[in-house]
Design a protein around this nucleic acid. Sequence first.
RNA 1: UCCUGAGUAGCUCAACGGCAGAGCAUCCGGCUGUUAACCGGAGGGUUGUAGGUUCGAAUCCUACCUCAGGAGCCA
Length: 443
Amino acid sequence: MLIQVSDIARYEGQEVTLRGWLYNRTDKGRLQFLLVRDGSGVAQCVAFKKELPPEVFEIAQTLTQESSVIVTGVVRADERAPGYPGGFEVGITGLELVQMAGEYPIQPKDHGVEFLMDNRHLWVRSSRQWAILRIRATIIHTIRTWLDDHGYLLVDTPILTPAAGENTTTLFEIDYFGQPAYLAQTGQLYNEANIGSFGKVYCFGPTFRAEKSKTRRHLMEFWMVEPEMAFFSLEDLMDMEEQFVSAIVQSVLEKHRMELDILERDTTRLETVTAPFYRISYDEAVERLQQLAAETDDPERKAELAITWGDDFGAPHETAVAEMFDKPVFVYHYPTAAKAFYMQPVEGRPESCRSVDLLAPEGYGEITGGSERIYDADLLKQRIDEIGISPENYAWYLDLRKYGSVPHAGFGLGLERTVAWICGLPHIRETVPYARMLNRLYP
RNA sequence: UCCUGAGUAGCUCAACGGCAGAGCAUCCGGCUGUUAACCGGAGGGUUGUAGGUUCGAAUCCUACCUCAGGAGCCA
């Protein structure tokens, strides 16, 4: 019977067939240990010379790493058996070679980053990558189901767009039949149109930023989910975000203990991620940072933490603030000048705006950014004029404030940063199957 | 764009002014419980590129290329 390795425990004592690839082989002479992957897991299959026809044992003895095979044998429990889930192995009765692999470049040992990224098409087969990408799929699934189950409608926004979402310098420009067009870096403005029809919406897809950023947190192409809600305040937004993010983390803990174990993730840091999260104002965050800077003796660290009111946070600031808390923390009411033009000013305090970022613990930084949007037509027009962008490009956006404008809010959550945080990865490049980075467009 | 560091066998690294080396992978041989198995043997090199210093350069100097880590910018 053809089975999946993930189900192996259900077939103890039965003869089964597995189809997959040779992950590793240990040659003990008349005894061959074959680690076979089938996509759902890894199982040890054991060939004894005495029990097999010579031509079948010959295959087991000569198989190269990543050769494709069809294995038949009897499942038995053995606590020495490695694999995922492990604890069971297959005593081989039959073995068919599908294709003998050539010399495989990636070995089960340490390799350099560049080499692995050049071989990404093969690296995705490695157990770490297998674990990460399975968790990524669950995070995507939970994002969609949680939003679908809470009254949000998926409304897709375009990837080819006529004008800048925010900042023209970070857009990928393409030729749209002789007219310039740009790869979308947000679906937010379209979401603001869509809430007029559906109330609560979200878009979820790839977004593009042509930033010449070369850090562990940046990709040129990344996935972002952007919920947008009519009649929503900043406080409503934080309430919703903490439920949403907690649900994502808890779903991974529920479904992926094995994968988190492969990644050697300290899951105690994830178990505490439940609502409510901490909430501090930008003013308080600046005070805390200034105090921290004052308390340190290291001049380098002091310079790194230096901040005055009005500055946006750099990566060291985000990390320092996040480290003050044992679960994610919201920082709200950033300076208006440091944020996008469409954010609602704080009542009676226009130098601050109704914005909120969610900082993940353990140095993973900003994973969501959101705000209340300006819904007054005159104020929005004034802000567009102030920052000097062409109002004609935003005619339809301004239109939204003329026909039943309502207070509304929304945010964007970066999928890859969320995956990196939950998996405990040092670099974002492993969170997506084929990373697009400053120096990387292959494979 | 800026700062710092690194490019030597397919891979991971050593040799740091005096004969180009090891482990893994590959190939051959041995082993009935391996966990990145182990033991013995073999093949494998334009030391990133170009120039310079020197009797002699992987090693020192200059430029360039590539990559990594960080900054800025951001999710």
